[in-house]
């Protein structure tokens, strides 16, 4: 059942491939805007690189949050999911991970390429990718709560960002902290383990909260 939800969502996403690419290109554009804004001076960019990449990842994953439930909400499959015998939180977990596969994973894969743009040394590139790999699922999971809460509301897009951004801050801090600690030589293991802890906690808690939020929105 869980795999079915992911497989179905991936199939849906693949049909409208444009949505997947728009999020990716948004991420690329935002990241390359910063050097234009701040100036080409290399070691300034290197210091900023993790922060820029992470904030861009935050924004792009949030942009596509609304689509997570909205299409199903419109054509009624969401109601069917609510009625299905399977636990709703499992379905929500499936949808959130499908959302991550569609939006989060491409960001992780493209991040090293963009890192070179910022003249990041090889090891911090690795740490950046690892932190993104751990962090972006958390973004999708917490985002699922926001998406469920603002289902079908006018101005939902802006509202999701207002609700969800404060909750993203720990992920942002540990993500950028990991890269910075590794570049300073402290080693990023502490930050990455904290990110892993956040991931495990959100894997357990957020589907339940998002399921509750879905039931409220669908009443």
């Amino acid at each position: 059942m869980f795999l079915w939800v992911i497989q179905r969502d991936l199939l849906l996403a693949m049909r409208q491939r444009a949505d997947v690419l728009t999020t990716l290109f948004f991420f690329i554009i935002v990241v390359s805007l910063f050097p234009l804004g701040v100036g080409p001076e290399m070691n300034m960019l290197r210091i900023m690189a993790p922060g820029v990449v992470w904030v861009a990842a935050l924004l792009s994953s949030m942009l596509s949050l609304e689509r997570m439930f909205f299409s199903d909400y419109l054509d009624g499959t969401l109601e069917q999911m609510l009625l299905s015998p399977q636990p709703l939180s499992l379905l929500v977990l499936g949808k959130a991970l499908a959302h991550w596969l569609v939006t989060g994973l491409p960001l992780v894969l493209i991040a090293p390429v963009l890192g070179i743009q910022f003249n990041l040394p090889m090891d911090s590139l690795l740490v950046l990718t690892a932190s993104l790999l751990l962090g972006t699922p958390v973004l999708s999971l917490i985002g699922a709560i926001g998406a469920a809460l603002t289902l079908g509301l006018r101005g939902g897009g802006v509202l999701v960002s207002l609700l969800v951004l404060p909750l993203y801050i720990p992920v942002l801090i540990f993500g950028t902290g990991a890269v910075e600690a590794s570049s300073v030589g402290l080693g990023a293991s502490t930050h990455l383990s904290l990110l892993g802890a956040l991931l495990l906690a959100s894997l357990v808690l957020t589907p339940w909260a998002a399921a509750a939020a879905l039931r409220i929105s669908m009443e």
Binding site: L149, T150, R154, G156, L159, L162, P166
Partner: peptide, 8 residues
């Protein structure tokens, strides 16, 4: 965020 959600 709380107030905005309730207002919406």
């Amino acid at each position: 965020g709380f107030m905005a959600l309730q207002a919406a």
